[in-house]
Design a protein around this nucleic acid. Structure first.
Lengths: 343, 343
DNA sequence: CTGAAAGCGCTAACAT
DNA sequence: ATGTTAGCGCTTTCAG
């Protein structure tokens, strides 16, 4: 039987309220002597506060809820989730909160899911890259719990933490153009996610504005994964005519691309330049190291915690858009003269 | 104001116990008509069960607690954590549990940490690769909550989920020897973790038993990271005499090794063979793809959940050791005649 | 078959 | 300065 404040009170012949105040250091003041004795017997009895009971009366839990990206729990295997989660954990740690990951978020499961997130275990929720078509944000009951989201732009009032995908893709492409590239292909992915959609659209827009050729056979779906990028790269690189550069909409695809190129003995960047997106750990681990647009995912995770904390405190919270930054590494260079083509 | 069972009871002029039984489908049976009306008004009122209250009386929370690897929260950034967590999440999902990640586990912080894990929010705990010297398992109060651990061999009664590091390293080295290698180096790492220690020790033992040369300058600390592996590889590969093969005690280091080799224009596997450990996502994403000993981390995460569930149910739980399996890819081959040296 | 009520452990308003 | 007590929302024993 675990000790409770009642036990401490009984032992010391004082009231539970005094014990509570002594233990919590307030709001009521307790004489030093009494406080010391309370602490001592608490230690003696092996007393451990029960946070369920405390939460029930205070309405606060000191835990943040997280909803992993996508509808599938498998998304938890992505570097994206890993890095954002890491930012969330370290920020949560700093404010003495723990983090509850909700598992049951699936299409058609909305009501049970809502039951879960409203059941009192968390003070608020962070949705990580929720899937595009989800109905969850339309659920009237969801407003009962404070929530923010990352990497998703919805026309609703949920505070969002995003990175500027459009500027990121644009800057990456500008860099390639400045290097002298005109024939630029793209590996896109995950068109059910806002990041996927926006990066794809930004590519199209830039190429159109810059009056550069958009060739369908140079634009492939790489699924945001190394394996997808590898397959897409193979089908792209085995064509008669290939671009001098490829924009990969995330680093995992860029890694897959570079591997395919190596197998095909196409040198990166001598014969084809590659630019990635995210600055994921893989990008700096492979040969050649991948030039990429850094998305500050860890900071975004931290920002999500801050925004959620503010929201919970009743403070106003605005959307935040983080800037991307070009990280120049080894996978992109000037196109060599003999690979250049002219339309 | 959220609706409670009291509200439902009041509306229908029945008792809260009937409402509770209707909602839960037992243990007491409730006439269909009443049950239907209870469910209807529950929906009407937007009733959501409060799990804190429920947990307080039942003592069950439907949530598992996780303690990330190492003492530093930063360990959450490792592929190890990511993959095991993924296994845990999917297994937890299947048994309708959520997962609470505890943040405050640090040396010297034991007592606050114990407060946290004993505060009633979880039914049990999974320690992921706890640091070697931790005092936490000696804490008498920890026995109050069921717990298991992964990737850690301690001489205590905590049920452990491990992989057979010794056999794994041995099989990897056997494979290299069968290919014809005798001059074998090693990149080890994290000697504060059991996995790190055991793999290091297994290498030494195998080499001794097989009467193969152990050369200190071929044995480097690569910190289990790509960057560490890269640095270690540089210092290893820029020596006058280099081995024909290198055992990397995890795949991240192998990836770093391969990158360094590429930069130094040392061909893998033609000039030097590399074998990794874990079969982490990176291993199959780089060029050349890394031959590795697969450690079934996702299954181990799932097994941890199963073991913990059993423990919580009061069932006996034994240690489990998972076998590793050689995954032959492209980074290891027979040594070429001209790289072979003879002592 | 159903209702009343105790109680899980805690906080805080309300006494004194 | 301290004690008493009413809940928080729920489950379940005990009465009827």
């Amino acid at each position: 039987m675990a000790a409770t404040i009642k036990d401490i009170a009984r032992v010391l012949n004082i009231s539970t309220s005094t014990v509570s105040y002594a233990l919590n250091g307030g709001p009521r003041t307790v004489p030093e002597g009494v406080k010391a004795r309370v602490l001592a017997t608490a230690a003696d009895l092996g007393y451990r506060p029960n946070r369920l009971a405390k939460s029930m009366v205070t309405g606060k839990t000191s835990t943040f809820g997280i909803v992993p990206p996508g509808t599938s729990i498998l998304a938890a295997a992505s570097p994206y989730f890993q890095i954002v989660l890491n930012g969330i954990l370290s920020a949560a740690d700093e404010v003495d909160h723990d983090v509850l990951i909700f598992t049951g978020f699936r299409d058609g499961n909305e009501d049970r899911f809502i039951d879960n997130v409203l059941d009192g275990r968390v003070d608020g929720l962070i949705f990580l890259a929720p899937p595009k078509g989800t109905q969850i944000f339309a659920h009237p009951e969801l407003t009962k719990v404070p929530h923010v989201m990352t990497n998703c732009w919805l026309d609703c009032s949920v505070p969002a933490i995003n990175c500027d995908n459009e500027a990121g893709i644009r800057d990456a492409l500008k860099y390639l153009v400045e290097l002298g590239h005109r024939d630029i292909g793209m590996l896109y992915g995950k068109l059910d996610l806002d990041d996927g959609i926006q990066r794809h659209a930004a590519f199209m827009e830039f190429m159109t504005d810059a009056q550069l050729p958009i060739r369908a056979e140079w634009i492939k779906d790489g699924d945001f994964t190394p394996a997808g990028g590898y397959t897409a790269a193979y089908s792209l690189l085995t064509q008669d005519r290939i671009p001098t550069a490829v924009m990969c909409c995330n680093d995992e695809m860029a890694v897959g691309f570079v591997r395919a190129a190596a197998e095909l003995k196409i040198s990166v960047p001598d014969q084809i330049s590659v630019v990635g997106f995210d600055d994921s750990p893989m990008a700096s681990s492979v040969h050649p190291t991948i030039t990429t647009m850094r998305q500050p995912l860890e900071e975004m995770g931290r920002a999500a915690v801050l925004a959620l904390s503010a929201l919970i405190s009743g403070l106003p919270v605005r959307n935040q858009t983080f800037s991307t930054r070009l990280i120049v590494r080894a996978s992109a260079s000037r196109p060599s003269e003999d690979t250049k083509t002219h339309d």
